[in-house]
């Protein structure tokens, strides 16, 4: 079985079956990443271009490692905002890269919709590695993979996503995926950080963190963009940490055996207390490890589909 699509742009557009296929495919690559020789020839002769318009270490490295372990040739192309001439379109840049016979373009961009715009304009497969506040589908898929790896089923699973949902692509992708899979999704944060009408996506919104965490199986923390202070979203980091920081006491409100997730990089002592980040319930480093396997699976499926 393979994905019947040229691009991976969003979880809003993936079916439950496609999500299941990606997670199953990741299983076999997870096994590869555990071997001493962590390399298979699946993408030998293929070219993967990491086109990152926004700084990112974690996601780019994860994609690079995934592609290399599949024996693909990998190019990292990170046009700094200053070197991209004003007025040059994203499409122009991408067509240049395509002309070098890239099979898969992995795109990170600060504008929502950039991956979709690009995918319409090039023949290469496009994988969205984060577009503005819109989606970060591979992050959500590795989150799902991590939850599933803990032996949790999705139907009826209670997941709290805590933080600045309005400006979070990770949150949107997880909302689309988890609601599709039958989980109960709760969003926790101040109303200034909730996008308009988000309840209509089938989630419950809590401005009281303690209430929102009660009985959940998964606590998914979002990174607080510290530079947003002064944008009238929250008064001070201190107050934010008190109201929406995850402490050991608050973890106790969740179901026993609940796991704590974070897409990283974490602000210790702001949205997550250091002891919680390092606790047994934290699966933050599992997420990073699984990221490589899931991205190997996605690259493999995309190359098969293309």
């Amino acid at each position: 079985m393979s994905l019947k699509r040229k691009d991976l742009l969003s979880l809003a557009s993936l079916s439950v079956d496609e999500i299941a296929l990606i997670l199953e495919t990741a299983d076999s690559f997870k096994e590869v990443t555990g071997r001493e020789i962590k390399k298979v020839p699946a993408l030998r002769g293929k070219t993967v271009v990491n086109l990152f318009f926004e700084p990112s270490t974690r996601t780019r490295t994860s994609f690079e490692l995934a592609a290399k372990r599949l024996s693909a040739d990998v190019i990292n192309f990170s046009p700094s905002s200053s070197s991209v001439v004003k007025g040059e379109t994203l499409l122009d840049t991408a067509r240049n890269i395509e002309a070098m016979q890239a099979d898969i373009i992995v795109l990170r961009h600060s504008s929502a919709g950039a991956a979709e715009t690009l995918a319409r304009g090039v023949k290469s497969s496009v994988i969205n590695a984060g577009d503005g506040w819109h989606e970060h589908p591979t992050q959500a898929l590795l989150d799902l993979y991590t939850i599933r790896g803990r032996g949790m089923g999705f139907r009826g699973l209670r997941v709290a996503i805590v933080g600045d949902v309005a400006h979070s692509r990770v949150a949107r992708s997880n909302i689309y995926a988890l609601t599709k899979l039958g989980a109960e999704v709760r969003l926790v944060g101040p109303p200034t950080m909730m996008p308009w009408g988000v309840e209509k996506l089938g989630v419950k919104v809590y401005s009281d963190m303690d209430e929102g965490l009660r009985g959940v199986n998964v606590i998914m923390m979002l990174r607080l963009q510290l530079e947003r202070q002064g944008r009238a979203l929250f008064p001070t980091i201190r107050e934010y940490a008190r109201l929406y920081g995850l402490t050991a006491e608050r973890v106790k409100l969740a179901d026993t055996g609940a796991i704590v997730m974070h897409p990283g990089p974490i602000n210790r002592g702001v949205e997550i207390a250091p002891d919680v980040a390092d606790s047994l319930s934290s699966v933050i480093l599992d997420q990073v490890a699984n990221g490589v396997a899931v991205r190997m699976g996605i690259l493999y499926l995309m190359s098969e589909a293309g």
Binding site: W133, R172, W196
Partner: peptide, 15 residues
């Protein structure tokens, strides 16, 4: 426009 579509698309809205 700020509304359900901007929420879904992740685009900054104008209320």
């Amino acid at each position: 426009n700020e509304g359900l579509v901007s929420t879904e698309l992740g685009l900054p809205g104008i209320p």
